[in-house]
Every structure is written in C-alpha cells, then in structure tokens.
Simulated scan of single mutants.
Amino acid sequence: MYKISEFAEMTGLSKETLRYYAEVKLLEPAYIDQSNHYRYYDDGSYFLALLLSKLRGFGFTIQEMIAVMEDQSFEHLEDLLMKKRASIRGQIDELLARIGEIDEFLASGREERSDD
C-alpha cells in the first residue's frame, strides 16, 4: 500500500488530482485509515492511474474517463480511442485550414503593398 504522496510521485498525478478523482469516483483509494483519514493506494490502483493519466494526455474529458472506468471490461476503449483520434485529426485539419487562410491573408496584404 502506498500513501497518497508516494502514489502521486509514482504516477505523476498530483495529490489534488488524486483527491479529485476520488471525489468524482474515478479512482478511489484502496483503503482509507479511519483514525487519520490517510488515503492508501495499491498496485491495482497504480495501473488504473496510469491508464487515466494516458487518457487525460489523449484529451479525454473527465466524463469520458468515467465512462471508460465504468466499463470495467474496457470493451469499448478501442472504439473511444478511435473516436478521439478522429476528433484530433479533425482539429488538426481545421488548424491547417486556418494556417492556410492566414497565409493567404498575409500574401494578399503583401501584394497590395507592392502595387503601391
């Protein structure tokens, strides 16, 4: 069992994030000592924390992460990851289109100045 500070260091998640994840029932401690209210995590919690950290890095919302954790079989995880990938690809395409518009706008401004 790991105290919250040890667990935070192991997983790269802050103590505040771990407390929040417990509050929203995303990742609850394996044990809470009733005498001092210290939170303890186990090896199973470690793997779930790594998964949550990875999902957060992929841009999953808290609600999406809760949906993944509620589906304990992780049967739909691949589908969710593919949807997230498509969403990110769409965002990239939109950003590239904006860059193209900016480039065109800059080029038209340069042409106007050179005509003067």
Rank of each mutant, 00 (worst) to 15 (best):
T17E: 15
E70I: 04
R39D: 01
E111K: 14
L50K: 15
Y38D: 01
Y20V: 01
D42E: 11
S53C: 08
T11M: 04
I32A: 00
R113S: 11
A8Y: 14
E112D: 11
R113M: 13
K15T: 14
T17S: 15
G59E: 04
L51P: 12
S114A: 15
F74S: 13
Q91C: 04
Y38C: 00
M10S: 03
E94G: 04
I102S: 13
Y20K: 03
S5W: 00
G57R: 12
Y31N: 06
M69Q: 11
L106T: 03
E101K: 13
R19F: 11
F7L: 07
L13V: 03
G12T: 08
K25Q: 07
Q91N: 05
E28Y: 00
D93S: 01
L77H: 01
A8D: 11
Q34Y: 05
S5L: 01
V24K: 15
Q91Y: 03
G100K: 06
M10L: 14
D43W: 03
L18Q: 14
R98I: 09
G44L: 02
D115V: 08
A97H: 03
R56K: 15
E64C: 10
E94M: 02
Q63V: 14
E64M: 10
F47G: 00
D43M: 04
K25I: 00
E6I: 00
E104P: 01
E64P: 06
I4M: 08
M10E: 12
L27R: 12
L80D: 12
R19P: 00
D93K: 09
E16T: 09
T17C: 03
E23A: 10
K54I: 05
L95G: 01
R56M: 04
F47V: 06
D71G: 06
T61K: 01
